[in-house]
Write a protein that binds this DNA or RNA. Sequence first.
DNA 1: CTGGTCCCCGTTTTT
DNA 2: CGGGGACCAG
Length: 728
Amino acid sequence: MIDILADLNPAQREAVEAADGPLLVVAGAGSGKTRVLTTRVAWLLQRGEVAPHEVLAFTFTNRAAREMRERVAGLVGAPAAPRWIGTFHATGARLLRRDGAAIGVASDFTIYDTDDSLRVVKRALERCQFDVQTLQPSAARVLISRWKNEGIAPTEAAGRAADPRERRVAEVFAVYEEELRRGNALDFDDLILRAVQLLAPGTAAQQKYARRFRHVLVDEFQDTNRLQMVLVKSLAQYHDNVFAVGDDDQSIYGWRGACIENMLEFEAAFPGARLLRLEQNYRSTGNILDAANAVIAHNRRRRGKTLWTAGAAGDCLTLGRVFDEEDEASRVVELVREELAAGLARGDVTVLYRTNAQSRALEDALRRATLPYQIVGGTQFYERREVRDLLAYLKLIANPRDGVAAARVLNVPRRRLGETTAERLRELADREGLSVGEAAARPGLLESALPPATARRARDFFDQVAAWRAAQADTPVPALLERIIAETGYRDWLAADDPTTAQARLENVDELVAAAHAFDEASQGGRLGGFLEQTALVADADALDDDQGVVRLMTIHTAKGLEFPVVVLAGCEEGLLPHLNALADDGGLEEERRLFYVALTRARRRVHLLCARARRRAGQRELADPSRFLAEIPAALLEPRDEALGAPSVAGQAWPTWREEPRRIRETQLAPAGAALQPGQLVVHPTLGRGVVARVEGEGDDLMVTVDFPEHGRKHLLARYAHLRPSR
DNA sequence: CTGGTCCCCGTTTTT
DNA sequence: CGGGGACCAG
């Protein structure tokens, strides 16, 4: 038997060997959190007092679940590894498939993702006859989701509504729930909410599972929400063995309902709970840690801890100020080349950013430089139209009541069953209190509601689906998928529909077929339901290529839990990081700061920070100030050092001068938004050309400049938008 | 019912 | 700049 405790430090060891009872491990970034968690599981099993099926572990992503499963298997052997390791959503789905009948959830329910759910909201809005213009479907969906996460039922929602708009959403909520029920579907929130209902105190299911799971472990505890906490409590009700690991400084999912109080008030939730801290960091250099510590110290709502390392201080963090996002992208290419020259591999460099939209400029530059790269996450594979179409066919086969799937493929490929027909079918179904699929299955019903020729086409469609359904039991998933593609002529349709995108879309179809084959092999002939479950709950971030050969690009959110030798953090600007939309409340700012902290602490050896003076947003070029977080990094840790950042400069003040020799900046340098502008000054405007400043009025954002252009006459320009540069 | 055009929208992060 | 929806003509 291997000594699983051999390489642990005292704090880690204490956590692993902790006695029964609730325990919160506050584990800083890079402190060996995953290691502690996996070793704890192995230790429990190795002592022989706990059987594999008595252990339940929650992770944040499927990737983390897989990793944990593999690592535990490595320690105790595959047969002895627990099977109940998964995300909250996957575990909720699993519990509901098994025992959902007790609360009226059929075992073959469909999972609606955010997009499906939005379609149902739109439909509900229509049924309530609310104007989509005044009540945005997406806003309604967010509110409904929030209510569900607070455990508020549709009947209670009206009472909770803060204004008339919310009262209308409450009405939509009720219809939405009815649509889900009729479609035999659960949305993401339901996977937790219904599991909580299933395991309510005193129920048979709670007796069963809370007794069985003698140990409940939770990873990334700082990002659990209220409902997930309730689920954990239900499951731990009997044995009271909750082993939670998290880092309040890395809580970055508040917008999704993550409740940092779960962590800050752990002892109140679990009386008698113990608390342990892991503060020794094994990942990053001293300088990176010092920078991260200094930044995060500005947050108020935290438990407080300080990471340290026994390792070397390492290199300074670098800061590059660039002209715009294109310049930034070229600088990223240069940085990659420099790292390659320093002996690192392409796969050692990861570029992080705040928003997915930032990836475009970076991709363009990397492609031009012929540097292979991979986007992790982003527009996800399973969100592509063609993939969703084909999955909708499979979903409709697995669950005839799935209304979203039926609506999606009714006329894809085109079979002359357009919106009018779809609407008639929905009306018919509503009248009968059935789903569209059920209504179509009733003899003669289609024919009663549609013109004869249309009814015939609709009948053909539903017959075709029924035939696939009949074949499903003894057709492997990949064969079924191929059959659908062939019999619908899907590939031809794709090619004809839009030749410019055909190739990429066909490749996606192939990739989906490949995924079906992979599933078939991995599950040894698994059922359709299993494949759909996987596609519904597996995110692209889970499919992080272990291929070390390419530069990787991802959002900071996606990077959570990962580590890389070199991190390039792009877009360190006010308005972007911290993001403008997050600044409304100060909790938002703290979460943005945690994002910055997460980004820094992903790096093992080096961090390169980039910030642009101007950035295109919604097609408009806008000036940007350096992120305030940059100024929170001690200057001694930054290279170059004389780039005094101070407080973000206000438009109208001089831009700081930079030692760094700008490459394109010199030619295209923005006018110091005002400072250098004075009557008589020669300036150049991007489109108006050369001119002479006649007058300067106002200040800050309102700084107005009057310029005489020889060819265009006198113009009044707002300095912050005019992009004037001084001319010699 | 389809295919085209136009316009408007908004662009944070994801299980 | 980009996609998605609304609107209109065949």
